[in-house]
Amino acid sequence: MDEQQKLIRVIDNIEQVMIGKRAVAELSVTALLSGGHVLLEDVPGVGKTMMVRALARSVGADFKRIQFTPDLLPSDVVGVSIYNPRDMEFEFRPGPVMGNIVLADEINRTSPKTQSALLEGMEESSVTIDGKTLPLPDPFFVMATQNPIEYEGTYPLPEAQLDRFLFKIRMGYPTREEELDVLRRSEGQAPIERIEPVLSLEELVEVRSKAEEVLIDDTVKGYIVDLAEATRNSQDIRLGVSPRGSIALMKAARSYAFLRGRGYVTPDDVQYLVPYVFGHRMILQPETRYEGITAEELIERLVIKTKVPVRRAGTR
């Protein structure tokens, strides 16, 4: 079984516990492959935790969960040095961030200080504790959730920090059929218990390096740049996507193409991923927002308008 098929098995595993959410599972695996992180914006109770756990089990990874609350301190996240009277020295107690796969639940409930402790880890792959920099385990994958309904007592993530997430995904409620299926399956043994690891952590690291070899032609790179430029030139968008956004899209597209079993990226990959990558990386004009137009809708319009490259550069 080659790597790509193993990844598909991972996705199948997730789908077993997250009925009807294959797209979310695919995106999560894509993010995992690209070394990016995912922000799930959704109402509670649709199975976010379950999904991350299933993912962690499938790759035999260490799963940690942090429930963010307003009184959570940075040290509660990254860990703390505690004085050990017996040994007469400070002993480091690693926090929950020191895991391979971390679920950061309701990240917008905690103070910016604590948020940034996590976000630093996501960006630098290391944390600073008591002036010392400690590396985070590899692979390191954060899936953060935030509740879009409650604004009272929340600290919305600033745009610059949203940039740390590769994808922002909305899950949505299951359909009637899917929910019925969920009910049926929750009667017996919890499906999560039945999940077998498909991939070891070492293999995952190897697969990642292979995914990086996926070819992305200059024509497709040009398409990504065109899309980013379109967000910058749009009347409805106050702040367009940064070059970091373009890089993120390129990385994600590579992983996605790999997941699809292709050795090269097509514009279809880019088109599919662009709302998840760009959606949280731009700031809409206030008027646009008042009109009720979402970032995803705007991106859809831009995609329709942006020319897909169908010819080799330099030929007619």
Partner: peptide, 22 residues
């Protein structure tokens, strides 16, 4: 490329934002 042109003349136009596989 020629085929794309012929298809366009035939009336099957491809919107700018549509990928080839679509």
């Amino acid at each position: 490329g020629r085929l794309l042109k012929q298809l366009r003349k035939y009336g099957l136009t491809r919107a700018d934002g549509k990928t080839l596989s679509d």
